[in-house]
């Protein structure tokens, strides 16, 4: 079981990072704003009036225009560098250090997102600035899955407002696996 032996050290390395933030906090490049909300509502054809209709929003329980709750992650997405995006493996920005590189180097090169759980504390209003911090929560032992043998990796991202109060969080789980036949499905 040489592969298990070689995977043990990277696993210990990765588990050493559990509970610590992955990189510095992501600060939203722009405050919560009506143009991006209108763009989102049009793209998803979501006609909920609290997102774009000021009069309806004022009459609602929210009392003013609010951002769609599932835009939470959108606010802190990095501004992309379009040139070279394919050469960077699809990463919108040049990444400094991927904590999962140790798993890739151990042969777990496949990536499959498996679960997302978004919890919303409150809806965001126009003008608010949010910041996201991502912490590695857990790395499973090797599991046999339909995709291949792999580790389930779980992160928790927490978004905070300008007063440092939590507005929402997302638990995100992915499988890092060794593809059968050496190709990624």
């Amino acid at each position: 079981m040489s592969s298990e032996t070689t995977a043990a050290d990277p696993l210990r390395l990765l588990r050493g990072a559990i509970g610590r933030p992955i990189g510095p906090p992501s600060v939203a490049p722009d405050p919560v704003n009506q143009p991006m909300i209108r763009h989102w509502a049009a793209a998803l054809e979501d006609h909920n009036p609290i997102y774009t209709d000021a009069a309806a929003a004022v009459a609602s329980r929210f009392g003013e225009i609010v951002a769609p709750p599932m835009m939470l992650q959108t606010w802190t997405m990095p501004t992309p560098t379009i040139t070279g995006i394919g050469d960077r493996g699809g990463s919108p920005v040049a990444t400094t250090r991927n904590p999962l590189a140790v798993l890739d180097e151990a042969g777990f090169v496949g990536t499959l997102a498996t679960n997302s759980e978004v919890e919303v504390e409150r809806y965001l209003c126009l003008g608010e600035m949010v910041t996201a911090t991502t912490v590695l929560e857990s790395v499973s032992d090797v599991k046999q899955t339909r995709a291949g043998r792999g580790h389930f990796v779980t992160w928790v991202t927490t978004w905070r407002d300008a007063r440092d109060e939590i507005v929402g969080r997302q638990t995100f789980r992915m499988l890092k696996f060794k593809p059968y036949g050496g190709s990624t499905p």
């Binding site: 609602s60 709750p69 997302s116 978004v118 919890e119």
Partner: peptide, 16 residues
């Protein structure tokens, strides 16, 4: 679309 504009989405947990 079902619950209406005064409904607040508190949690969405999905398996992909």
């Amino acid at each position: 679309d079902w619950a209406g504009p005064d409904a607040m989405v508190k949690k969405i947990a999905i398996r992909l």
